[in-house]
Design a protein around this nucleic acid. Sequence first.
DNA 1: TCAAATAGGACTATATTAGTCTACATTTAA
DNA 2: TTAAATGTAGACTAATATAGTCCTATTTGA
Lengths: 133, 133
Amino acid sequence: MIRISKKVEYALMALKFISNSDHKLVTAREISDNNNIPYDLLSKILQKLKSENILESNQGANGGYFMKKRPEDIPLYNLMSAIDGEIAIAECLNENAEKDCTMLDTCVIKSPMLKLQKEVEELFKRKTISDFV
Amino acid sequence: MIRISKKVEYALMALKFISNSDHKLVTAREISDNNNIPYDLLSKILQKLKSENILESNQGANGGYFMKKRPEDIPLYNLMSAIDGEIAIAECLNENAEKDCTMLDTCVIKSPMLKLQKEVEELFKRKTISDFV
DNA sequence: TCAAATAGGACTATATTAGTCTACATTTAA
DNA sequence: TTAAATGTAGACTAATATAGTCCTATTTGA
């Protein structure tokens, strides 16, 4: 199975909500209530989006989030890797597979897998948040 | 994260091994030993490949498996869905999401997600086992 | 100084994936 | 005709990844 995690779905919904809002600042609570997303989980996601410079926030009362980049400038790929970490299409393509994989030398499918990985990456880099907003 | 399951990796390795073998029949044990794949797990996988008409088998002593289709006629997509079931890029695109998804009516990202799903499918349908063999 | 907000770590629960165990059925060769 | 080699199949357990919760700061405006 191959999938977009629920967290990324939530992120997309949040970004859509923020983009379409006419407020300057949108709170996590608003997003959570309007989209039926667990508040605590959403908070974590928004924080990650902030640390990726996708969102900016004001803390404190009357605080909230706002877009730091335009949707068309945010590849879906970046969103995914920000939230779920590096995207490896197969276990053996992880950074630390070199120490984990028991069959490094004998592996017969690594190089075509790598090629496929590149193609999937391309696809997710071509897509931007504006495709969802 | 987005990935090819280990079972599919094993299937690819098995198909490669069978394709490159000069025996008429290859046993699960041979494949398991040569590729470091847990025997029981591999057996299950081979059985699924059989039920998908990718492999054929002879039972009994001197039995084993052999290719029923040519690698270039087996899309990676089919292998994946044979082994791991239908490929839905997001939870909401599953067959039974209609009853499960709490936000059917309000969902704001379903249609672009569906488009993305099609594109990923295309990619995996274009790839065939011959790319790995 | 209080209430409303973001920030962030630790924890628990759930679902998915990987792997194991046991029993049985089929075929061949001795 | 029987033993060994093989595929078939279901139930179970273990490991891992994902989703979700809880609790406690910290910041800031009224």
